[in-house]
Design a binder for these strands. Structure first.
Lengths: 168, 168
DNA sequence: AGAAACCAGTTGCAATATGAGATTGGCGGT
DNA sequence: ACCGCCAATCTCATATTGCAACTGGTTTCT
C-alpha cells in the first residue's frame, strides 16, 4: 500500500499511523488481556460492540503492519486463529500505562478497571512476566515457570470484583 | 457534552475516546516536546501539516476533556496561549513508551527520532524531571533546580543530529 | 495615517471513514 | 438434508477528514 505515504518519520506519528484510531488498540486489548483469538470472539465478546466490517478491516490492517498473524485452525477448516507478533506483545507496557492513566483521569467503571489496577500495582516486573506468557501462547516460546500466571491473576481479580458487585 | 455516551467504562477505551485519533497526540507532542503554545505555531511548525479546522476542533476537544486550558495573552489581544493540564503532563511516560516502540518497529527517520532515543535512554528519572519542567512552564509550579534541563538536552541533541546530517 | 502582515479561527465542499444490519458461501454436527 | 456456526462482505446512511479560501480583528512597518 503506502509507499512513502507517511506523514513524517517521527516515531510517535508513525506509531499513531499504526494504532492511532478508535478500534485497533481495543482489538489488541481483547487479544492480549481477554485471550480472544478468533473473529467471532472479538466480534461478540467485546464491551464496545465493534461492527463486523470494521473488525475485518482492522484485522487486515494490523496484519499488514506486522502486529498480528493469521493461521488456519487445523481442526476447523473455516476457523482462523489470530496471533500476536513480538511487536504487538511489546505494546503491553503502553497498554499498562494507558490503563493506569485512564483509571486516574477518566470515569472508569470498577469491574472493567480492575485488570488495569492489578497491572499497575504489579509494575514492570509483572508486565515482563505477562509478556513471556503471551510469547508462549502466541509465538510458541516456552515461558519460565511460575506458580500463578499473570493471566490467571487478572482473571481471578476480575471474577472477584464481578462477584462482589453482583452480591451488592 | 456526551452524557453517558461512552462505549464502555474500560480505562483503555475511555483513554482512546480522549486521544485515540490521528491528531490529538501529535498536537500534545508538539506542545510537550516542541514547546508550542499558540494556534499558529501548532499549525505551521508541525511536520505533519495539520489542517486549521482539524486543529481548531482538536484543541476544543482536548480542552473539553481536560487536557488543555486556553488563556488570552495579556500582551497581544488576539493571541491565545494553550497550557497543559496535569492530566496531559502525565502522558509523558506514555509518549516516551510510544516513541520507543515506534523507534524499534517502524521506519523512523534519524532526525525526528533522536528525542525519543534520548528520552528512552534517560528512563523514568528523566521523564519525571521533564514533567517537573512542564509543570513549571504550564502550571506555574516551581521545579527543582538542575544544571541542564531536559528540554535543553532534547533540543541540543536534535540540533546536533540535524547539523551532522547537513554536514554529512 | 495607511498598508502590510499576523492572529485565531470559520466556512464550503469533496473525499473518505464509520456504523448498523442484512447477506454470502463454505463447513460441521446430527 | 437440515440447521447453526464461521469469517467475512455488501449496501446504504451518516459522520469525519482534509483542502482551500475566507473572516474580522490586531499589531507592525513605513
Amino acid at each position: 500500500m503506502d509507499l512513502a505515504a507517511h506523514r513524517s518519520g517521527c516515531p510517535i506519528n508513525l506509531s499513531l499511523e499504526v494504532f492511532g484510531d478508535r478500534w485497533s488498540l481495543i482489538i489488541l486489548r481483547d487479544i492480549i488481556f481477554g485471550g480472544r483469538r478468533r473473529f467471532r470472539e472479538l466480534l461478540t465478546q467485546s464491551e464496545e460492540r465493534i461492527a463486523s466490517n470494521i473488525l475485518a478491516d482492522r484485522l487486515k490492517r494490523l496484519m499488514a503492519n506486522g502486529l498480528l498473524t493469521r493461521a488456519d485452525d487445523p481442526s476447523h477448516k473455516q476457523k482462523a486463529i489470530y496471533s500476536l507478533t513480538e511487536a504487538a506483545i511489546q505494546l503491553v507496557p503502553i497498554m499498562a500505562h494507558v490503563g493506569a492513566w485512564g483509571r486516574r483521569w477518566l470515569p472508569v467503571t470498577e469491574d472493567l478497571s480492575i485488570r488495569a489496577q492489578l497491572l499497575e500495582d504489579g509494575g514492570p516486573a509483572m508486565w515482563t512476566q505477562f509478556m513471556h506468557e503471551l510469547r508462549e501462547a502466541h509465538l510458541g516460546v516456552p515461558a519460565p515457570k511460575s506458580d500463578a500466571t499473570v493471566a490467571e491473576q487478572l482473571r481471578a481479580g476480575y471474577e472477584a470484583v464481578v462477584a462482589r458487585l453482583a452480591a451488592g
